[in-house]
Design a binder for these strands. Structure first.
Length: 345
DNA sequence: CAGTCGTGGCG
DNA sequence: TCGCCAAGACT
């Protein structure tokens, strides 16, 4: 038997015995899971850990059991339900795709899936394999790591992606497409981990060039990362009786489309009261909030004030009950700030 | 292609 | 403590 088939068979046998039980997953060898649930889980899992996505998946599928139900959701409700999970463009694309396929089902080919908003190369392959049983080369960060080690691919990412994909293709079997994809990802998540791989527990370590090399963590090689700049801003907490002013952020850009506390623009130095929603007497609230995004660190001064009659409301602004701020669906950075304002009084 | 886009957990 | 990273997509 060719070594590629041996590798696939060992991975599948290991998966049969060790597969993680996950809310969106059908057991090894069982019929595929509902495409809606597979799709929803794959979107939630983009750059997101299983532990973080799982409670959101449970809430979403309970509230919206079908893609038709999701398609009928209000935009604001969907965005609020996504709050805290991050990468909010996923939520907007989720709704767009739900409305595109409602009533006619998901396409069952990679090419068809790839045309839907929020579904790229990885997700299209994953859905085709897991929900429809089609052979597809499913390459996520787990598979990249497993394959780079298995074949000791020394070229750095992202340039090595084509070679890694070709290597993944070479060990992808024709049958059990969904199980194989998930077996590879389980292996990467539980055994072939980033820092301390458990090679002796790995069903294919005897085929692994990275293991033979003595230092499997040397793979995959990655390009050096850029330094993360610091930006500064101000968050305004404007009260009016029992309410606080919330705004809706523009659809595009950071935290796009999300309900938020008002801020001015962010820059290289603290902007003070520039960009305040209203000209009232502001007072500082400690401490400064620091929040780390993917490509910059944000330091936000907090100021509070009380609305006066000449404060003019603008489109997208709303007064929200302070004691229900937890239900506003604020992204984490604003939830963090709101909790400080709340305990400050 | 390289930058943009969240968040939380882990060693 | 803090840098690294996760079932990537889009421009």
């Amino acid at each position: 038997m060719p070594v590629e088939n041996q590798i696939a068979n060992k991975l599948l046998a290991h998966y049969d015995a060790q597969a993680r039980s996950l809310p969106w997953r059908s057991p090894p060898g069982a019929p595929p899971a509902d495409p809606y649930r597979v799709w929803l889980s794959e979107i939630m899992l983009q750059q997101t850990t299983v532990a973080a996505a799982a409670p959101y998946f449970e809430r979403f599928t309970k509230r919206w059991p079908t893609v038709e139900a999701l398609a009928a959701a209000e935009d604001a409700d969907l965005m609020a339900a996504w709050a805290g999970l991050g990468y909010y463009a996923r939520a907007r694309n989720l709704l767009a795709t739900a409305r595109a396929v409602a009533g006619k089902g998901f396409p069952d080919t990679e090419a068809g899936l790839r045309e839907l908003p929020g579904i790229g190369g990885y997700t299209a392959a994953a859905i085709a394999a897991i929900a429809f049983g089609h052979r597809a080369v499913v390459v996520d960060a787990n598979v990249e790591r497993v394959v780079a080690r298995l074949f000791a691919i020394a070229d750095p990412l992202p340039g090595a992606k084509p070679a890694i994909r070709a290597a993944a293709d070479s060990i992808t079997p024709d049958g059990r497409a969904g199980d194989f994809a998930q077996a590879m990802m389980d292996l990467g998540a539980t055994i072939c981990t980033v820092r301390a791989p458990a090679c002796l527990a790995c069903p294919i370590h005897e085929h692994c060039a990275g293991y033979v090399s003595g230092d499997p963590t040397a793979f995959p090689v990655k390009a050096a990362k850029k330094a993360r700049p610091v930006r500064h801003g101000t968050i305004f907490w404007l009260e009016r009786g029992k309410d606080v002013l919330l705004v809706r952020r523009p659809d595009k850009g950071l935290l796009g489309g999300m309900r938020a506390l008002p801020t001015g623009s962010w820059g290289d130095s603290p902007p003070g009261l520039a960009g305040a929603p209203c000209d009232v007497g502001w007072h500082a609230v400690e401490p400064v909030v620091t929040h780390v995004f993917t490509h910059f660190e944000l330091r936000l001064a907090l100021v509070a004030g009380t609305s006066e009659k000449h404060c003019k409301m603008q489109p997208g602004w709303e007064w929200w009950p302070k004691d229900r701020i937890g239900q506003a669906g604020l992204p984490t950075v604003f939830a963090k700030a709101a909790s400080i304002f709340g305990r400050d009084g």
